[in-house]
Amino acid sequence: MGYIQEARENHVKKKVEEALRSKMKQKAMKECDHYASKYAECAYGRTLSVVFKCRNQAKELNNCLHQYTNDTVLEEMKREYALQHDGKP
């Protein structure tokens, strides 16, 4: 395999991974919408005090998001993608 062909394949793989990451983040935001709303409600009208006053809401949101946006989830999405596309990794 030539250098140019390999570079093209790596570029495609990166684009696919970017798309999967984006899909993963969208799903996480959808699943954690309740926590995002609670954080937004707490943060409304605050500036610097948001860090202190909304700490619990931020922690809840981050914990929820982490359930849906971690390396394990991404690897599973990559496996599913590979299976859907003729088993090509």
Results as ranks from 00 to 15, higher is better:
A43P: 00
G87C: 08
K13G: 13
E17P: 03
G87F: 13
H11E: 14
Y44I: 01
K59T: 08
Y81F: 15
Q5E: 14
E80C: 02
L74Y: 07
N10H: 04
H85N: 15
K14M: 13
T69Q: 15
A7K: 13
K30C: 03
M24V: 01
H66F: 03
R55W: 01
S22M: 10
C32I: 01
Q84I: 04
V73G: 00
N62K: 12
N70A: 07
R79Y: 07
K78Y: 07
C32D: 02
R8L: 14
N70E: 05
F52C: 01
I4D: 10
Y39K: 10
L65F: 06
S49R: 03
G87K: 04
E9Y: 13
N56W: 03
K78A: 05
A7Q: 12
Y35H: 07
A58M: 09
C64S: 07
V73A: 00
E60D: 15
C42L: 05
C42E: 03
G45L: 08
K13F: 04
E41H: 03
P89E: 13
K88W: 10
A19K: 12
R21P: 01
E18W: 08
K78S: 10
Q67W: 07
N10R: 09
T69P: 02
G45D: 06
K59Y: 10
V50A: 14
E6M: 09
T72N: 02
D33I: 05
